[in-house]
């Protein structure tokens, strides 16, 4: 799920940037430092939408660098266990398939694919039902449930399932247009 939240960060700035453009410099450095990063706690920082407040700077002894506490609003993407979302299949193999929902990778193991779907190898590996009516291959759109997240300091990885009611291939992606 995407969230709009307020985060705080202590920014260190070299004294050569002090002057009328100090604020601009801080903001552009913030964007460069933070956008695109991922933390286990807040998820992926997709985009900074505004700076709420820049606090008083504190000179660090010995170096001359100054630390500013900066409060900013941003859009983050944070997956949760139990969340249901839509994703695009990126790779299929006999172990299961990988899908992507925005910045996050989700693996669905073949144990968590309905039993009536069989793996078919070939040029375009896929999972297909015995009657051939439903097929999961690269670029398919699926609706899945996240059942586990592995969160470390700089990455989030998810395990998903499509073995539940109302989950699986989105039958007609064209209908959503």
């Amino acid at each position: 799920m995407f969230f709009h939240i307020v985060l705080e960060r202590n920014m260190q700035l070299h004294p050569r940037h002090f002057g009328p453009h100090l604020r601009d410099k801080l903001v552009s450095k913030l964007i460069k430092d933070v956008e695109g990063t991922c933390s286990g706690r807040h998820g992926f920082v997709v985009a900074i939408t505004g700076v709420e407040d820049i606090g008083k700077g504190l000179i660090r002894e010995g170096t001359g660098y100054v630390t500013f506490p900066v409060k900013y609003q941003c859009v983050v993407f944070r997956p949760f266990k139990g969340e249901i979302l839509e994703a695009v299949v990126t790779m299929v193999n006999k172990m299961g398939f990988f899908a992507e929902a925005g910045p996050v990778q989700i693996f669905v193991s073949n144990h968590l694919i309905p039993d009536d779907m069989e793996f078919q190898s070939g040029d375009v590996p896929n999972y297909t039902t015995s009657d051939g009516s439903v097929k999961i291959q690269k670029d398919s759109e699926v609706r899945l449930k996240i059942i586990g997240t592995r969160v470390d300091a700089t990455e989030i990885f998810c395990i998903g399932t499509i073995k539940d009611d109302f989950l699986g291939v989105i039958s007609d992606p064209g209908a959503a247009m």
Binding site: F2, E35, G36, T37, C38, F44, V45, V46, A47, V75, F77, V88, E100, A101, G102, P103
Partner: peptide, 10 residues
């Protein structure tokens, strides 16, 4: 960033 790009496409 790549995160931005992927999110936008998604």
């Amino acid at each position: 960033s790549q995160v931005f790009e992927k999110s936008l496409q998604y």
